[in-house]
Design a protein around this nucleic acid. Structure first.
Length: 579
RNA sequence: UGGGGUGUCGCCAAGUGGUAAGGCACAAGGUUUUGAUCCUUGCAUGCGUUGGUUCGAAUCCAGCCACCCCAGCCA
């Protein structure tokens, strides 16, 4: 079968993207544009730390940052916030880049790394020391904690707070030279140990770590902290709007303090705007609420635990909320983008109902997935009066003729789903019953004349007669309301089908009231059906294509386990069931 | 009992002093060779709460309540 929708899939879905709705960040950007704050320039950045895989929560941030830039003719950088080499690795760098591209976004220019600014960062630290705004402190981590005070009690000044500038300069140089062991001392900002905001109580700017960095190798043995690095990296890249999540709100005063403590011109000179006549304006941090979805976990630690303890099959297990997992499950990038837009951006912490995600998925798939038939629990049916095998030509999509047609063989031996047959008529049951009629999707109306049982008394086969006058038209004088799907028993291709359900049994597995989220796993989150039969056209189609197996749901070939000799389909999501 | 935030329909979320958008979910109809899709309709005299200002308040003011974040040399 050719590839009916692949080439146009992106265009079609693009036109389906929901219209942008108002949110407070769009307002801020619009105001800044109106007041010409940045001379019309909009620069954002997505700053992941390469210490884990991206998940659905990151998708919101990615869509926001890349979206805000794109909507306003701006640019969005991808910057790895790689200041803690102990937790990071190249493996994550690579995976993150791939995920972002898959989601459909392109970052501005080359990938950035905070670590590529280490030299500038060092220079600015020297500047702070020279201004008397930073000092080398010999307190151990434990001692520093004691001096810091508590939420309700102010901290005390470090005994090393009043060292001379010359001594601080010398000590900081020696830190860089590697003269001290890990943790012996640190560089701290000199702000206010009695600040009610603990982040302002002389926060650490540099710590000593004799460890190899995935990007800079052994060039450094001191590494800057997040607070110190992030604001300056933003400033260097000429970021106008620095968007982050709510928990960083208390860090904003520090973000501003560091940038305002430095000589503005000295920042401009090392920034991406150094040779531009654009006015140089410091970046502005704005916080928004993280995305949380019920029945799923998104915490890096928990995701890692699921993988490490074998509770799922890997980071890309189709039940995982990682982008890799969702992709393997069959989620489309467009559906994720639409979902993020529909969820909105605000400052109230919320937990979105997973039905919103599922809606966005079905909306995209219904529109773009070609239809096919696959019988999950085969029951053999002999069409007793079908003269010979015939080839039917069926439309690939009920509403989109341009997606073409495919050939579906109808043979005297077919299979239908066991669930579509009942021996006795039940009220409301619209499928096949003994002695009753049903429409074979895209083919004839058949009547069940006889049951054939096996030695155990189980129904082994149905013998049905075909009403040869019902191809493409309704039978005369009676109504046949049921329609069931089927596959040729002789031409159908065997396949394994994996059905998924939510990974957790409770709405909020990450709640603080949950003692151990692992006890809340849904034991039926994965069900494997062997011996399914899929129509030939779908079996030989492009493996990247998503199908709607009619009346069953949306499916895609498993990218890891499926081979031409042994097909494996993942159910992305079922059809909405309204009965 | 410090500081910073948030509270608008079951779940998200617009709204920024002029009389409560939209989506999801749900319910009821219609179309249908997918119990899908699609279409139609319904769904907050009410905006955490109590007072106040005003001709008029979800929007302004004050108090109260609830929940979230912060004491890493993590990000």
């Amino acid at each position: 079968m050719t590839n009916p929708n692949k080439p146009t899939q992106n265009e079609v879905t693009a036109s389906k993207e929901s219209a942008p709705s108002a949110n407070f960040i769009r307002h801020i950007v619009a105001e800044d544009l109106a007041s010409n704050r940045h001379a019309g320039r909009i620069q954002t950045r997505f700053p992941p730390e390469p210490n884990g895989y991206l998940h659905i929560g990151h998708a919101k941030s990615i869509c926001l940052n890349f979206g805000i830039a794109a909507e306003n003719g701006g640019q969005c950088n991808l910057r790895f916030d790689d200041t803690n080499p102990a937790k990071e690795s190249q493996e994550f760098v690579d995976a993150i880049k791939e995920n972002i591209n898959w989601l459909g976004f392109n970052w501005s220019g080359e990938v950035r790394y905070s670590s590529s600014y280490f030299e500038q960062l060092y220079g600015f630290a020297v500047q702070l020391i020279e201004k008397g705004l930073a000092y080398v402190c010999d307190l151990s981590a434990d001692e520093a904690r004691e001096y810091r005070g508590t939420l309700t009690e102010p901290g005390r000044n470090s005994p090393h707070r009043e060292r001379s500038i010359a001594e601080n300069l010398s000590l900081f140089t020696r830190m860089r030279e590697g003269e001290f062991v890990d943790g012996l001392c640190s560089l701290r900002a000199k702000i206010d140990m009695s600040s009610p905001n603990i982040n302002m109580r002389d926060p650490v700017l540099y710590r000593i770590r004799h460890i190899r960095h995935h990007q800079t190798g052994d060039a450094w043995c001191i590494y800057p902290t997040y607070d110190y690095t992030h604001c300056i990296s933003d400033a260097i890249e000429g970021v106008t709007h620095s968007l982050c999540t709510l928990e960083f709100e208390d860090h904003r005063p520090l973000y501003d303090w560091i940038l305002n403590s430095l000589d503005l011109e000295s920042i401009r000179q090392v920034s991406d705007l150094s040779s531009s006549d654009s006015p140089y304006v410091l970046p502005q941090q704005t916080e928004f609420a993280k995305l949380k979805i019920n029945y799923t976990v998104v915490g890096k630690r928990k995701l890692k635990q699921l993988v490490d303890e074998g509770l799922v099959l890997g980071w890309d297990d189709p039940r995982m909320s990682t982008l890799a997992g969702m992709r393997r499950r069959g989620y489309t990038a467009a559906s994720l983008r639409n979902f993020c837009e529909s969820v909105g951006v605000a400052r109230s912490e919320s937990q979105v109902d997973i039905s919103m995600l599922e809606h966005a998925l079905r909306e995209d798939l219904d529109n773009n997935a070609p239809r096919a038939m696959c019988v999950l629990r085969p029951l053999r049916v002999t069409l007793t009066n079908l003269p010979e095998a015939i080839e039917l030509s069926l439309q690939n999509h009920p509403k989109r003729e341009e997606m073409g047609r495919r050939t579906v063989p109808l043979t005297p031996e077919i299979v239908i789903d066991r669930d579509d047959f009942r021996e006795e008529a039940e009220p409301g049951f619209k499928r096949l019953v003994n002695g009753g009629e049903v429409r074979l999707r895209g083919a004839y109306v058949i009547r069940c004349d006889e049951l054939v049982r096996d030695a155990d008394g189980e129904i082994a086969e149905l013998r049905c007669s075909v009403d040869l006058a019902t191809l493409g038209k309704n039978p005369e004088g009676r109504k046949v309301k049921g329609v069931i799907h089927w596959v040729s028993a002789t031409d159908g291709v065997p396949a394994t089908v994996r059905l998924y359900d939510r990974l957790f049994t409770v709405a909020n597995p990450e709640s603080k009231d949950v003692e151990d989220f692992r006890t809340l796993l849904n034991p039926d989150s994965l069900r494997v059906l062997e011996g399914c039969l899929v129509e030939p056209a779908a079996a030989s189609a492009d493996s990247a294509l998503s199908f709607q197996f009619e009346r069953e749901g949306y499916f895609t070939r498993d990218t890891v386990d499926s081979t031409n000799g042994a097909l494996v389909f993942n159910q992305t999501i079922g059809l909405r069931a309204s009965h």
